[in-house]
Design a binder for these strands. Sequence first.
DNA 1: CGGAATCCTTGCGGATACTG
DNA 2: CAGTATCCGCAAGGATTCCG
Lengths: 121, 121
Amino acid sequence: MTYTKCSGSGDCNGFFLPLNDLMGVLNGKWKMRLILCLSSEPKRFNEMKKCHGISPRILSKELKDLEINGVVLRTELNDNLKSVEYSLTDAGKELVSIILQLQKWGTTHRQNVLEENDRLK
Amino acid sequence: MTYTKCSGSGDCNGFFLPLNDLMGVLNGKWKMRLILCLSSEPKRFNEMKKCHGISPRILSKELKDLEINGVVLRTELNDNLKSVEYSLTDAGKELVSIILQLQKWGTTHRQNVLEENDRLK
DNA sequence: CGGAATCCTTGCGGATACTG
DNA sequence: CAGTATCCGCAAGGATTCCG
């Protein structure tokens, strides 16, 4: 698996397979947000819904996706309140640190772009 | 800016702002791929097009987005061939290492999920 | 409380042909 | 060679209502 050659029609598909997997896990508008949201502490369905202004249909679907992909753990609490708690798996916690790096990049980078735009005026 | 509290209607919006920026930069189906594709060496328009099977309209748009966000640098070569070279900026190169971490996560994680599914049979 | 069902809109991305 | 222009389908995401 080489990084340098990208000739031919689909030579680099093998190289991008793991990235495809990754994007299948983090795709969409909400997944990274939800992961960060759970990074501090486990939360219940309605807690997350209120926080982000996400519709229940989407939230349910996204959490299910994350659960299937081993990022999130769903736990039904036996408190006679039918409440459910969502938390991060170990794999999910590994993702957090990477997402935080991306976030940090976003912060400093936004700063740079803004300064650049100022300079061009 | 606290990580732990997420109560109220939109308290955590401030926290997620940098993530929004980041997702504006990396959103869509192609951006991360293109960044990785350029990580080894600068490439020209048609090189990238052939490699990924991406339509010219999308490729053009994606590259323009990446350029605006300071990830990619567009250089017109003076070789009388009207050829254009795309390369990564320093900010873009910083992104590569993070994306590679995500990719690595995808690899090991895919493995785990597959093993888990085998175990359940 | 934690969802499922239903309906609807938007815009992303693809295909193709064309241009300077 | 490096894009634009035009058209189009589909799926992601949103709003709302209902259910156990």
